[in-house]
Amino acid sequence: MSLNEFLAALDALAAEAPDRIAAAADLEAWTEVRNALVGRQAGRLTEILAGLGALPKEDRREAGQRANAVKVGIEEALDTRRAALAAAAATSGPALDLSMPARARWIGAVHPVSLVIDDVIEIFRELGFSIAIGPEAEHAWYNFGALNFPADHPAMDMHDTLYLGDEQVLRTHTSPVQVRTMQRYRPPIRVLAPGNVYRRDFFDPSHAPMFSQIEGLVVDEGVSFADLKATLSHFARRFFGASTRTRFRPSYFPFTEPSAEMDVQCGVCGGGGCAVCKQSGWVEILGSGMVHPAVLEHAGIDSERYTGWAFGMGPARTAISRHGIPDIRILYDSDVRFLEQFAR
């Protein structure tokens, strides 16, 4: 066989292949065509290539290249045809009623209070805060004494306490985590402490004997009330919307001084006064203040060198107003029809 004859055979194959491939009407016919064209046993290309060895040595290179080009072309055409046939096969038979529902699966849900905590954490994480955890059954010293509560003083009346023993309590706030954190880690400290706290409050539409709180604490040199104000206002704008206005009111917590409560402008009435904000135009969001020097000292930190600020908020209240939940007890009842509303 000469090179010309070899090339002529290739050309002939290349010329007839597209029509034969297009004529394959189903996958079975396609397989036959493929075997006939490029099959290893009896395919036309295989037969032609068998003649390669008979060519003069100097022609083999060109012959091989041409043969490969033809092979690639045919295989591409075969692949394209098979894809088309497969697609056709899939939609043949009775057509799918595409309006029917997807195969169903249960969708889980995070509790609405956790959703609020998540959002708070996300915002403060951007500002470099990490997460601290402390015990719920706590020494009275961590819950009160270390936090500068005067013994047997009306300030204690603000915390109706569940006791486990004379000096053991179910913590009434997450603030004990402040003291534990400061004793354990050297400043700079930037932490959030989410957790459950307990009060001897009977269940009613707005009170629960256990609820979640989220605490924030910053301790470093040169930390000021202006930082507190800036950070918490930034938080409010990130949480409630960029145009959210805040105000700080004097307040009292034994463990902070100066102490302030932060309000945001009522989102329902926009500040004009309504039932939600009790006509004041403002809604209380959190308590805050500069860490009292006595608290720093109780935690073994030099109160002259270091200053700090802290805040605490109740995510359940925010969850209730955010989702329009009329009674706090719904959060605890755990009715699955309520929980399903938060599926995502």
Binding site: G128, P187, I189, A226, A230
Partner: peptide, 23 residues
């Protein structure tokens, strides 16, 4: 309190790692 400035200032990163129970 309204008269105090409230622009965010730079802060040093804290030394406290995330509590493993939280993660």
């Amino acid at each position: 309190f309204d008269r105090l400035p409230d622009a965010l200032q730079g802060a040093r990163p804290g030394t406290v790692p995330d509590h493993p129970l939280f993660t």
